[in-house]
Structure formats: structure tokens, C-alpha cells
Write a protein that binds this DNA or RNA. Sequence first.
DNA 1: TTGTAGGCGTTATCAA
DNA 2: TTGATAACGCCTACAA
Lengths: 336, 336
Amino acid sequence: MKVTIYDVAKEAKVSIATVSKVINETGRISDKTRKRVKKVIEELGYSPNILASALMGKQTKTIGLLIPDLANPFFSELARSIEDYGQLMDYNFVICNTDYNFEKENKYVTLLKQKSVDGFILASGFENLERVEELMKEEVPVVMVARDLPIFSVNAVALDDFRGGYLAASHLIELGHTNIGIIARDLWSNRERLRGFHQALQENQLKLHPKFDFITETDSIEAGKIMTGYYLEDDNRPTAIFACNDLLAAGVVKKAKELGIVVPDDLSVIGFDNTSIATIIEPPLTTIAQPIESMGREVMNLMVSIIKGEKNECSRIMLLPTLVKRQSVVAITKNK
Amino acid sequence: MKVTIYDVAKEAKVSIATVSKVINETGRISDKTRKRVKKVIEELGYSPNILASALMGKQTKTIGLLIPDLANPFFSELARSIEDYGQLMDYNFVICNTDYNFEKENKYVTLLKQKSVDGFILASGFENLERVEELMKEEVPVVMVARDLPIFSVNAVALDDFRGGYLAASHLIELGHTNIGIIARDLWSNRERLRGFHQALQENQLKLHPKFDFITETDSIEAGKIMTGYYLEDDNRPTAIFACNDLLAAGVVKKAKELGIVVPDDLSVIGFDNTSIATIIEPPLTTIAQPIESMGREVMNLMVSIIKGEKNECSRIMLLPTLVKRQSVVAITKNK
DNA sequence: TTGTAGGCGTTATCAA
DNA sequence: TTGATAACGCCTACAA
């Protein structure tokens, strides 16, 4: 049935130890036998059983990638970028969708740990901090991505979310907006973005729109629309809305359109992430860009150096957001 | 370090066989010992090493999901739906991105097979047919999804792509369009869609636009824009374009917009898939809907019954597409 | 009802 | 340069 190392050994008239050695290129073996063994391996179409070797503690060259929501283009683009760099370094990925769900997170780390992945990449939204700590304790390579995590030491590459929020607010304020609504989900990264946003407001003696609240339960266009409804039917209607990601921002412009409110003339909207959706929507979204490409690269570099044991200190790589101006934000003078 | 079955056995003062039995609920053991063992398992936080048990031929409750492109919302939504139903049946998923790439497909089936997944779900775009046949021969449960595959017997749940194409063409023709462009990638499912499209044209004594060709190399908005350029700068400009998926269709409306051509007044466009993108784009896309939800359900039902060995015949489940009318298609009288 | 022992496919340590 | 042989952690007859 399944061809094992024994079959190869028998066919090549050597011991399994020898076969193992040529496979793993360990120990010294004569050229002649090496060639013979290799030929037999070829002929029999043998490939070692990863499970068995993993059982012996060998690395699997597989890393687990936990993503909260594949439907959010930011995450699918991030996954894509991580995978691309990973391939270059000869790593494979198994992607699991945690759905922002505590139990699924747990289930999947357990599963993948048992499958002995070489490491974990945990994307933003992974809220199960105890579990992360546990992994660290067990010396499983872990790097978190796209989130800040100040509580304890963990490898991470994150965006300077604070700065992102600050950037968004500054841009709006510069253009004369003083009455700004915010839409966000209650996530760590968003809290940082809001802190930054707040900071910029304060520096300009401005305050948050009173209706502000962390209402959305999900990151979706639908959620964005609902939240927008609350703002737009307010007497004190904001002239601009900051949505904590492009998906939500898309919901804002959709909802505005439904209500006959013109973006950007009647309402400016700024998003976050700079995913493909920012260019699909009409008008194209002004947004705070995350350097998704660099994130992928940095994450994998970090991961590999951890796996190789080149790191004993834990590192945090902070990437900078940038403002991408498109057509959904406009100066206040134009509308009022 | 890692707690094994031996630790549990020692702590509970029984043999590993007993522990194994309570875990797998096989054999008869007294309530008293069962409880004791369970308690120890709890205390020690023991969980069996899946690799080791898989090595013994036990099922892993994990199924491999090979997706060509996570960035295409159709696939991410499909993955989502499969996962949702799978969870209900207590299955876990590892998702791999094949990138429509022959070698990656190969690499990942090898990888996952070695990791002993209980089965494979292969999504449309998986072109490595020999490999599929090989899996079937080895009696690995396989089901293909969202593609037709007439060459040999394989379990599949597919869309009636032919009918989808037919539907699209009929709708356009009904509204008076006679000069229609097509944009597609050279994929199996698309060939079917085009056959159906063709059929409808023929029934109405119509012909394909002469510029038609399978040009796109990727499914992306960008590719859609480029292709659209070719059509729109033609003297014999089509009055409607059928894009074989929503991503491409989005490219069409984007490009038209850039050229100052109004959709739908100057150009109707019809997509395929009915993904979220169809509602994001402006105007909302008229499109042929795939029943993504049902697909996920059917796929998992099929997979589970195969795994359980309830099936020895191979089945093909054919799902029907439907036309979803939105605002990107309009009758020809309006423009000419 | 419980335990002993062999095997799953590898890797790794020593002898030879 | 090679080959026995003991792990790795688990499952499962077969005994006890």
C-alpha cells in the first residue's frame, strides 16, 4: 500500500538507517549507496511520512496562520502576503478562520499544535491572550501581527494604530471638519486608533460626536450601514465619518447614498486599511493605508529567525501607516 | 514537558491501555476508574497527540480545503460556508491557497495527505487532474466543488455553469442586446458558461463579438479593466459585456467609468457569482448567483458520507444558478 | 475490568 | 561507511 522507509531499504539492500541518512543528508555515506538509494526512492515514489518524523521532533516546515475573518479583505490580503513571503523561505501554511471566536481560537491552536506546526502567526482579533501566553511558555514560536499587545512580551509586528488614528483625524481637521463621527468595532487595534484620533481632536480643542459608541459587533458593510444610520438621522449630523476599516467605510458611503446624502460633498468619509475595496467603492475611498506587503515580509522574517533560535529576546516591529488621499474626503467649506 | 498518556496512566495508577480506552470510549471499564482517569486528564491538561494517533490510522477530524485564490470573494465566501457547515459536524479545516498553480496544488495535497487529513475539498480552479485521480485511487475522500468534471468519476457538487451562461445571455438578449462582449479566464467552469452563453446566442441567430478571446490570466479587477479597454476602443463597440465573475465585472464598470461611458445607459454589464462585491460596486451588479450557502452544505454532507463509507458510488450534485437583477443591465432601446 | 506487548514510520545513538 | 536498536506517543489484540 503505502511505501515506507523499509520498502526502500529492502529494495536498495541497505538498512533503514542508511536510507534515513540519505534523506536527511546527515552522517557520512558513500556516493555509490547514496545514488542507489536515491534511485530506489525515485522509482518507488517514496516520500517520508511527515507525521512520523514530526513525532520524532523534526520540523514540519508548516506554520499555522490564524485569521479572524477571511471575508475581510484586509485579512485575506495579509494572508496572501504572508504566504507569498513564506513560500520563498520554503514554508507552507495552514490557514484557520477563527471568526473572532474565543472557542475557535482555542480549538485551532490545540489542533495545530498537535499537528506540530513549527509556529503560529496570530492575526489581529485574536483575543485569547492566556492562550498566547501559554504558547510562549511552551516555547512555541508565536508572532502576532497587526495588533499591539502591551500586556506581556510577545513577538509582534504591528501597525502604529495610534498614529493611524491621529493621521485620519488630522486630515479631517485640516480640511475644516469639526463634527466627526466614528465607527468601530471594539478591538484592541481600534482602541489605539481611537486614542490617536482623540489626541488629534484634543490638540484642536475638539470633541467626539456625542453619539459615539463602540457599537458594531462585526466588521461588515452591513454593520457600517446601520451605524451610519444612527449618525445621519441625528440633528447634529457629522460632516465627516471615520470608519475603522474599509469595510465599514464602504457601509458608510452605501448608507449615505441610500439616504440621498452625497459623499463627499455632504459627508466626508475616511477609512482604514487601504484594501482593494477602497478602490472599488464609488467614490474611491480616502483611507489610512497599512503596509500589508511589508507586514508579510516582517512577520515571516521574524518567524523564521525565531524558529531558527536566533532570537531569545522578543521583538516588536512597528510599521507606519500612511494617508492615501482619494475622493471621499473634501474640505468643509464646500458643504456648509 | 509535554504530558503524555504515560503521565496520565502513572498519575491515575492505571495502565496506558486503560487511559486510552476511556479517551476513545472503547472497551469496558468501571465507572470508578473512568472517573478517576478523567479527573487526572483534566488536572494534567492532557490531550492526545493527534500525530501519534493518526499514525495508528485514526481519523483526524480535519479536512483540507484547497482554494485557488482567497482574494476572490467567491472563494472566501465559499470557504466560509463550507467551514460553517463543517463546524456543525465537528470538522476542522486547513485552508491552502493554491494560487491556480499546478505545483502549489501538488505540494499542498502531498503535505496534507502526509498530515493525514480525513479528506480533501478541492475548489474550482484545481487543474491538476492526474493528482485528483491518484487520490481517488488511493481511496482518499475527495470532493470537488464549484466545477464540473466530466472526464472521470469524482464526487462533486457543482453549479450548472452551462445554464448560468445561458441565463446571462438570455437576459441580455431579451433586453435587446445583440452585440455582446465576453470576458473570462480560461477555466473549466468558464468554458461551460460560455457554451451556455453561446447556445442562447445561436438560438437567436446571434454571434459572439469578433474580439472575443480568453485573455485574462487572472481574476482581478485589473484584468477586467484591461480586457474592457480592448472592447470599448473597438469601432464595433458592444452594448453589453458578460464578465465570468463579479471581480472581472467590477473591472468592467471601473474601466467604463474611466472612459466616460455610463453603466448601464451606454453599456450593460452582467457578472457571475453574486458575491459581496456585486453590491459594493456602483451601480449594483446584475449577476448570475451561485448558491454558495447550499454549496457549502452539500459539499460537507457529501464529504461526511464518504468518510463514513456510506457511499461507494460517486455522486454529482448539480446546483442551479439564478439571475439576480440589479442595476447594471438595462434594455437596449434606452441607449441606441 | 485491566494490563502487557507489539506495531505505526521516522530519527538518532552507538557499535561494528 | 553502515546497521541494529531504542525512542516518539498512541492504539489494540490478546492475556490475565
